[in-house]
Computed example of a mutant assay.
Amino acid sequence: MSELHFDLLKRLSEIGGIPGREERVRELVEAEVKDLVDELRTDALGNLITVKRGSAPDGERKRIMLSSHMDEIGFIVKYIDDKGFVRVQNAGGFDTKNLYARNVIVWARGGDLPGILNPGGRPVHIASPDERKKIPEIKDLVVDLGLPADEVKKRVRIGDPVTLVQEFREVGDLLCGKDMDDRASVFVQIEVLRALQGVNHPHDVVAVFSTQEEVGLRGATVAAYSVEPDIGVALDVTLAVDTPGVPAEEATTRLSDGVAIKVYDTSMISTRWLVDEFIELAEQSGIRYQLEILMGGGTDGGAIQRSRGGVPTVTLSLPTRYIHSVVEAVHKADVRAEIDLLVAYLSR
């Protein structure tokens, strides 16, 4: 296979798109895939649904639905006080200890506004010992836009998105930035469509770039209902807890050990015969893989599996360090392994 387009992953990582406001991501993805697929549409929830038709005769072709979500965890404007400071509501789950002194963008009328997100209260120089130890709650966070209150209230509305800002970097063999969850999987899905050009694949590949996963698998739920897939393959990230301070048995997955084939999470139990098919194919093809049991969290696979009368479904995961922070990190070798395994599966 050709060299991967990590410049695309950089653009996907750095662009903003909270649940329900994925339009900037969708525009970027659509521009990348429009020449790689036979059909393309956007549904009422903003899912981008693409179809690459297979070569098998009518009546023999199955529909294999891939799904990776475009949304990222972020915030919406909740309140603007008399000094012009903005309070926020989270859209998706944060570990708030990762939210000190962050650069953000408020999607305001007339254009984006740069802001500073920080907890209110005393700075460390004058804080009490107890205040220094406190982990902030979402209600403690404020956005400083550096503008007079009347200007803020003129340009910012309740419900405006607030997205974090972080530069994408390559750190050794790691690809690091915000929104590897799940833009790394969006990237994988695009690269799979690219790799399938000129490759015979018997079944229709319905690649869905879904919305609102971080707030309850909402986009994939309606997409799976309309697509009516025969097989579902969700693409997402999973915990790589292979850093100091955590026992080996709690690692979930480890970076560079290969693509993770999910067995269980709190949204789904992967269909066992599909798990076995992917294991067998990985071993036959010499593709590194690991098995995943995730004790907290779910993926689009849970929505696909429970659609209509039920769909045989498996999730392929990218092991990721520092999930739900702005320095989420995946390993280049695991990205390659996931692309190789998917292409091998789809072209069988």
Rank of each mutant, 00 (worst) to 15 (best):
R157P: 01
R157Y: 03
R157E: 15
I158M: 14
G159M: 11
P161R: 02
V162N: 10
L164D: 03
L164A: 06
L164E: 01
L164Y: 04
V165D: 11
Q166V: 01
E167W: 05
E167G: 08
F168V: 00
F168W: 02
E170Y: 03
V171R: 01
G172L: 05
D173Q: 06
D173V: 11
L174Q: 03
L175M: 13
K178Y: 01
D179V: 14
M180V: 01
D181M: 09
D182T: 05
A184D: 09
A184N: 09
A184Q: 10
S185H: 06
F187K: 06
F187Q: 07
V188Q: 04
V188T: 03
Q189C: 08
I190W: 00
E191R: 01
V192H: 10
L193Q: 02
R194M: 11
R194Q: 11
A195G: 12
A195E: 15
Q197H: 04
G198I: 12
G198H: 07
V199I: 13
N200P: 07
N200Y: 01
H201T: 03
V206R: 04
F209Y: 14
S210A: 14
E213N: 10
E214I: 02
L217H: 05
R218K: 15
V222G: 12
A223T: 00
S226I: 14
V227Q: 07
V227H: 01
V227W: 04
E228C: 09
P229K: 04
P229N: 05
P229A: 06
D230C: 11
I231K: 05
I231C: 05
G232L: 01
V233D: 08
A234T: 06
D236T: 07
D236E: 15
V237A: 10
T238E: 03
L239R: 11
D242L: 00
D242P: 04
T243I: 14
T243N: 00
G245H: 03
V246D: 02
V246T: 08
A248D: 15
A248H: 14
E249P: 10
E249Q: 15
E250I: 09
E250S: 15
A251N: 08
T252C: 06
T253N: 07
T253H: 09
T253S: 15
R254N: 13
R254Y: 10
R254A: 14
D257C: 09
G258S: 13
K262W: 03
K262Q: 12
Y264I: 13
Y264W: 15
T266E: 14
S267D: 08
M268R: 00
I269Q: 13
T271F: 08
T271G: 00
T271R: 00
R272Q: 11
R272Y: 12
W273D: 14
W273Y: 14
L274G: 07
